[in-house]
Simulated assay, not measured.
Amino acid sequence: MIKVSYFARLRELTGKSDETIEQQSMTVRELLEWAETTYPGFGKDTVHVAVNEEYALKEDVIQSGDSCAFIPPVSGG
Rank of each mutant, 00 (worst) to 15 (best):
E22Q: 08
V51F: 05
I71S: 08
F70P: 00
F7W: 03
V74W: 12
S64L: 09
E53T: 07
L10S: 03
S5F: 08
G65Y: 09
A8T: 10
D45Y: 01
E33K: 08
H48T: 15
M1H: 10
M1K: 12
P73E: 02
E19I: 13
M26G: 07
I21Q: 03
R9Y: 04
E22R: 05
I62L: 12
K16G: 06
E30N: 02
E33H: 07
K16F: 11
L57M: 15
K58I: 08
E22M: 08
S67Y: 14
T38H: 06
Q63D: 14
S64R: 09
G77C: 12
S17T: 15
Q24S: 08
I71M: 13
A69K: 09
L32A: 04
F7N: 03
Q23V: 12
E33P: 05
C68G: 10
E53P: 10
T46G: 07
Q63K: 15
A35F: 03
V51M: 07
D45K: 06
E19F: 07
L13N: 04
P73Y: 00
P40W: 04
G41A: 10
V47R: 01
Y6S: 00
D18I: 02
I21G: 05
S67Q: 15
S64W: 12
E19A: 05
Y6I: 01
Q23K: 09
L31C: 02
V74Y: 08
D45S: 00
R11I: 00
L31F: 06
A69M: 08
D45A: 06
K3F: 04
K58A: 05
S17K: 12
N52G: 06
